[in-house]
Design a protein around this nucleic acid. Structure first.
Lengths: 185, 185
DNA sequence: CGCAAGTGGACAAGAGTTGTCCGTTTCTCT
DNA sequence: AGAGAAACGGACAACTCTTGTCCACTTGCG
């Protein structure tokens, strides 16, 4: 009894919809919202993911897989700064895209998620420390601090009431951050 | 018939509680939550602020007043970079403190808020352009872009699952941003 | 002391979410 | 093509959270 093709297609739709919804509105999205976004009935979503944790774990796993791919790519760059810059930008953009996801990962997802996260952090550390060793990246920050800075691309002039300015995207922020991170400024 | 002293005290408590609640949870906080935080009954909150807009306008006015004071102080610094640095840091920290306040200011508050906002933006523009004119601040960003960068201090390694690290506070972020903003890096 | 202003919190109404259930539709295998 | 199993959708009841009102009670002030 192989899995029916319509079931597979719906599963994919639900996951994609969940990712979009979570990215936009955070972990708090309702099942009905996800179902509507996916164009399926709520029952279908509940059947696939009987509880919230499973759903969120699936979403997180999906996001993390992309990030890990970027980190591998960064590590394979010959030029240490270029690799770092690629990773940093990639993480920043992804973080911004998933801005709704403000809660920590630790509380959600099981050991599989923890493993992916561990892998991503390990790769990132290598990319960062290689750039530091080669004297391209400032050394007065620990790799964790550098990683934390990737979140800075999620910029909003919130108290000021400046609109996000999606026209220029994250360019100004990333330029300034990378200039500030480069060694020997 | 002067205003009773207990009424005044409660009004202050409500405003303070509202600020705390809004800073933590955004504009969406419930009246009951604010009342509980303030240690008063809901009725008291409703009497003081019959509708949401009035409450939020009061909160925003309070925050903006602080920011305007900082901007004035920045403008009175003799050294242009020092002034800029002061303003930037002040805005960044306030923005981070009110991270819950992600919506734009425009939709809330009446003309009074708009006026305060206008005043703050005008002062900020002067601080920024003075630093640029004196060749201390990089010129390839418009003053609006520079201001937008203040939001970057609200850093969270959200997708990565790094905890906020309140121990070091915003220091690393601000250091890197300011280094990246300084002219002639 | 008296009374008007102010207070607190119970309460009803409404909005939004959760999770289930079952009649109907859609696939797959023969 | 036809039968049977698998999957689907969305109505629905239970529940949670918020709003906003109302009134018996308390408190500051003259």
């Amino acid at each position: 009894m192989p899995v029916r093709v319509d079931a597979q297609r719906n599963a994919a739709r639900v996951l994609a919809a969940a990712r979009r919804a979570v990215a936009a509105n955070g972990l708090g999205v309702s099942y009905h919202e996800i179902a509507r976004e996916a164009g399926v009935g709520v029952g279908t979503v509940y059947r696939r993911y009987p509880d919230r944790d499973q759903l969120m774990a699936a979403v997180l796993a999906d996001i993390l897989a992309e990030l890990i791919a970027t980190a591998h790519q960064a590590l394979s760059c010959e030029d240490a700064w270029e690799g770092f810059s690629l990773l940093f930008t990639g993480l920043a953009v992804r973080t911004a895209q998933n801005a709704g996801l403000s809660g920590s990962l630790d509380q959600h997802g099981g050991p599989a998620i923890a493993e992916q996260r561990h892998q991503l952090l390990g790769l990132s550390q290598r990319v960062i420390e290689r750039a530091q060793d080669e004297g391209r990246l400032r050394r007065d920050l620990a790799w964790q601090e550098v990683l934390r800075l990737t979140g800075a691309a999620t910029v909003q002039g919130c108290v000021l009431g400046l609109e996000p300015d999606s026209a220029h995207g994250h360019r100004p922020v990333l330029t300034v951050l990378l200039d500030g991170l480069r060694a020997g400024g």
